[in-house]
Amino acid sequence: MLQSLFSKLSRKRTSKDVAKERLKLVLIHDRANVSPQFLEMVKGEIIKVIQNYMEIDEEALDIQLTKTVSEESDSVVPALIANIPIKSVKNVGR
């Protein structure tokens, strides 16, 4: 008991915390059934489309599969999150 109290106080990450974190990440990919190559393909296509309208910082573009809480229920669902820094907006369609 002392040991568990001590580990709580020192906030040391226990091996089960590591296990849980690793599992959660791997399951996001398992459940979505995607590979890193798949993400690269999605990324390429997104860049192509957006470049028609904006100039973006391709180097800083970050796209990843993660999870979020569903708006309909409280369950956790996979989400595609993209962070795309815009340099300037092109003068099309305005």
Binding site: Q3, S4, S7, T14, S15, K16, D17, A19, K20, L23, K24, L27, S75, V76
Partner: peptide, 18 residues
């Protein structure tokens, strides 16, 4: 082992597998 934080608990597993 669960108590020492060296094994996932029932709650941990249920949380992951829903």
């Amino acid at each position: 082992m669960v108590k020492k934080g060296d094994m996932m608990s029932i709650e941990d597993i249920i949380d992951i597998l829903a």
